[in-house]
Design a binder for these strands. Structure first.
Length: 191
DNA sequence: AGCACGATGCTCT
DNA sequence: GAGCATCGTGCTT
């Protein structure tokens, strides 16, 4: 076990988003261990980024993004789905990385069961597979005491990572709509 | 294999 | 009250 420390996250968000590709997302849930390799991320950076929730400033929803790097920002959207983000950069600088997809490595059966046999490549899908909800909002992902943390994993070379525009932004204006702040593993599988 | 749409409820204006 | 960092179904090619 090699948990990524606060110093990993207190860096430029794009660096963190890129380096989280291949990291191990670990969930300890009622005695069961679930592990997935992170295969897709997106960066959301500052109040100037009109795709970022914090464009609205510090609100009851967005306050975790203003906190310490390495904590979780979990929010609910579209009436059904929980989204898992990791806070980055300095305190009071609102930014985070959205974890969009994982490749299940351990606890595959339980994750598959929770997904009714369907895949985990999607931000709402991986939280469902791992049982992540509001109760994980703001937890420190650099400790193993909250049942959710991130460990160093597989080094994925640039040749296997695609960089492109973020998805699902709908009415976000340029230039934010086209910023290549999404990272994903080619072919969706790391190992 | 790809697109359109409805579900569903919280957040901010 | 509108919009949403989505998902699954069902219909079309």
């Amino acid at each position: 076990m090699n948990i990524l420390p606060h110093s990993f996250y207190n860096r430029p968000t794009l660096t963190v988003a890129r380096e989280l590709i291949g990291a191990r997302l670990v969930r300890m849930d009622r005695g069961k261990k679930l592990v997935g390799l992170i295969t897709e991320t997106e960066a959301y950076i500052s109040e100037n980024d009109l795709a970022c929730h914090c464009k609205a400033g510090r609100t009851p929803r967005t306050f975790p993004m203003y906190g310490e790097a390495g904590h979780a920002y979990v929010y609910f959207t579209y009436g059904n789905h929980w989204m898992l983000n990791v806070v980055t950069e300095e305190v009071d600088f609102p930014a985070a990385v959205l974890i969009r997809a994982i490749q299940p490595i351990e606890g595959v059966e339980l994750m598959s069961e929770r997904r009714n046999g369907r895949d985990t490549f999607g931000p709402g899908k991986l939280t469902q597979a791992m049982g992540i909800t509001k109760s994980q909002n703001t937890v420190d992902l650099t400790e193993s005491t909250h049942g959710l943390w991130i460990e160093a994993g597989v080094q994925v070379p640039n040749s296997r990572v695609t960089k492109g525009p973020r998805v699902g932004l709908n009415k976000t204006p340029e230039p934010w709509l086209s910023k290549p702040w999404r990272f994903l593993v080619k072919g969706w599988k790391i190992v």
